[in-house]
Computed example of a mutant assay.
Amino acid sequence: MKRKHAFFLLLILLILVAGFSVLYGSYQLSITELFSTLAGNGTKAQEFAIFQIRLPRTLLALLVGCALGVSGGLLQGVSRNPLAEPGMIGINAGAALFVVLWISLQTTQYYSSLSLSTAFFMPFIAILGSLSSVALIYILSYRKGIQPVRFLLTGIAINTAISALITFFQLQMSKGDFNQVLTWTNGSLWGSSWQYILFILPLLVVFIGYALYRSSTLDVLAFGDELATGLGVSVQKERRIYLLLATCLAGVATAVAGNIAFLGLLGPQIARKLCGGKHRNMLINAALISSIILIFSDALARNLFSPIEIPVGIIVSIVGIPYFLYLIFTSSK
């Protein structure tokens, strides 16, 4: 498929899925009512449903999907491994651990009643947690440089350890707090609001913009360390820069959506099949694909068993695990 065709088809699909997410729910809206409300002519109930609940939630899912899609694409480019993604190697888990600890120090309410100062610092706390996790992985896997396979395997081990630590921390909580943290750490957008969008949007614009600006170096790294070094690329330095960008993106996403695994795997992999291996195009399309998956998954999570809401991370995993196994089997041939 031609790159331009793929981009525009994905953009149209994203708009359709976003519209479905805003319309579909326990309070049904028609397309006419949607446009009327957006124009300022809706009822109070329609305005509340759209502007206070569904629209911010859909936009937050869009931003989180973009962040995790680009993060996964960077990790796969740096490691030259199609199975690399932030939820697997402990980046999301590290961010989740720090956010859980931060919120617990401030309040027993998760998202619904957070103070403005607590919410403002959440993305930065999450970035600190994800960077701490990556630093630990980097130190443990460093042997005269970073080898992608060793880094990935170390990350899987650290992810397991941090997940166990989060579970141990949850066991010390009351039943209500335990359930809230369990829902959030499995991936949830239920507490989304405009303030979280305003807090993370500038960070994502900077990180994603810089990743796209430097994406051409990833194309060189894809040829292998020896050839990249021969072309004048400082391989270890570039790996650290891209790893830092991927980590920050995953940390910001985890701060507002919890630990959503496989989204950073699905977007880049599907994007490569649609538009080839050039990283700039792949990262843009990966952001769109991951956003489409997350928005649609969140709509299902809200409405499949309404009024009970299930964590959106579970829906994403239902899609991601079979694809993950497919990649393992095909790459081993």
Rank of each mutant, 00 (worst) to 15 (best):
M1K: 03
F7M: 12
L9Y: 13
I15D: 04
V17A: 15
V17M: 12
F20E: 05
S26G: 15
S26M: 13
T32L: 10
L34N: 10
L34H: 07
T37I: 04
G40Q: 08
A45I: 15
F48Q: 14
S71K: 07
L75N: 01
L75V: 03
Q76I: 10
G77M: 01
G77H: 01
R80T: 07
P82S: 09
P82K: 10
G90D: 01
G90C: 02
S104I: 00
L114D: 08
F120P: 00
A126F: 05
L140G: 04
Q147G: 09
V149D: 11
R150I: 14
F151W: 14
I156W: 04
I158M: 13
T160L: 08
T160E: 04
A164R: 03
T167Y: 09
F168A: 12
K175A: 11
D177I: 06
F178C: 05
P202S: 12
G209E: 00
S216D: 07
L218C: 11
D219Y: 10
V220L: 15
A222C: 04
V235R: 04
R240G: 03
L244W: 11
A253S: 13
G258Q: 09
F262E: 04
L263K: 01
G264R: 08
Q269I: 06
L283N: 00
L288W: 05
S291A: 14
S297K: 09
N303C: 06
F305Q: 03
G313T: 09
I315S: 06
I318N: 04
Y323V: 14
Y326P: 12
Y326W: 15
S332T: 10
